[in-house]
């Protein structure tokens, strides 16, 4: 395992608003193919942390590096070009285009063709888009208007868009928010499978503890802007400090699984 390169390295990330320290000295690393969950109660600083990683927010201090290259304070579009894909808490797609066209735009952007005024986009990267859609199980919906999709399908489309630049790192902000329970499991299984196959590192925030404990290789727990625990799901579940301040849900999880085991 030690041969797997460090994909994302975060050192001393700090951000405050006025007197409020939203994020204080957060440091962690993420290796290729690893699925890392960032959890914490509301207001813990997850979103601030996330926004600094994807370039929507500029840290006061600290460094973020992707495969050794500095991304701190860079614009989202620049970070994307450095091989970081992302999905949004509320899925963001292009509703007036077809599902295939949604992916084609991302592919065209990846191919640095955005200022091409003359070629027909329809012929560009058509098959590549179809392949990505098949990968996320949306191949049958390729010609549908994106605006008509069910929300779960929009989330899968968003994943396909995020994969268009062959990212090395995928940032997913509450990937399963607003989805039905079965869809959640499917989406996360899909993400995990793709991540392992293509050795993509995944960092996601999540409120649903079932999702977190089932899919994360490692968990970071954030509270009041600082990391209070880090480790495998078992380690985090056993951490008394985490239990004390946070895991109301975790206890339920334990109880439910013990019930399941005894039954």
């Amino acid at each position: 395992m030690s041969m797997v390169p460090t994909l994302l390295s975060v050192e001393g990330l700090t951000k405050s608003y006025g007197g409020v320290h939203a994020v204080r000295g957060v440091s962690f690393e993420l290796r290729a193919g690893e699925i890392l969950a960032l959890i914490g109660p509301n207001g813990a600083g997850k979103s601030t942390c996330f926004d600094m990683l994807n370039g929507q927010n500029i840290p006061d201090s600290g460094r973020i590096r992707v495969l050794g290259a500095e991304t701190t304070g860079k614009k989202p579009r620049v970070i994307w070009r450095m091989g970081v894909g992302r999905t949004f808490q509320i899925a963001a797609t292009f509703p007036t285009m077809t599902v295939r066209e949604n992916v084609q735009v991302a592919l065209v952007s990846h191919g640095a063709q955005l200022f091409n005024l003359w070629a027909s986009t329809a012929r560009q990267a058509r098959d590549e888009a179809g392949r990505l859609l098949d990968l996320v199980g949306m191949g049958a919906y390729a010609e549908r208007p994106c605006g008509e999709l069910a929300y779960g399908d929009v989330k899968r489309l968003e994943l396909a868009i995020a994969l268009a630049n062959q990212p090395k790192l995928l940032l997913m902000d509450e990937p399963t928010a607003g989805m039905a329970p079965r869809e959640r499991v499917e989406l996360m299984r899909l993400t995990a499978r793709i991540a392992r196959e293509q050795s993509i590192g995944v960092l996601f925030t999540e409120h649903d503890m079932d999702v977190v404990f089932e899919h994360a290789d490692r968990i970071l727990v954030l509270n009041r802007g600082t990391l209070i625990a880090e480790g495998s799901p078992e380690e985090v579940r056993g951490n008394t400090q985490v239990r004390a301040i946070y895991l109301g849900e975790g206890l339920l999880y334990d109880a439910r699984h013990r019930e399941g085991a005894s039954a």
């Binding site: 070009r81 797609t93 292009f94 509703p95 285009m97 084609q104 990846h110 955005l114 027909s120 868009i161």
Partner: peptide
Amino acid sequence: FSPFGFALRATRDSPLRGEAIGI
């Protein structure tokens, strides 16, 4: 219908998503 037109429509539809795919 050129890539530029698509990028323009993408920006109109969702500037956030557009920026997140390098536009």
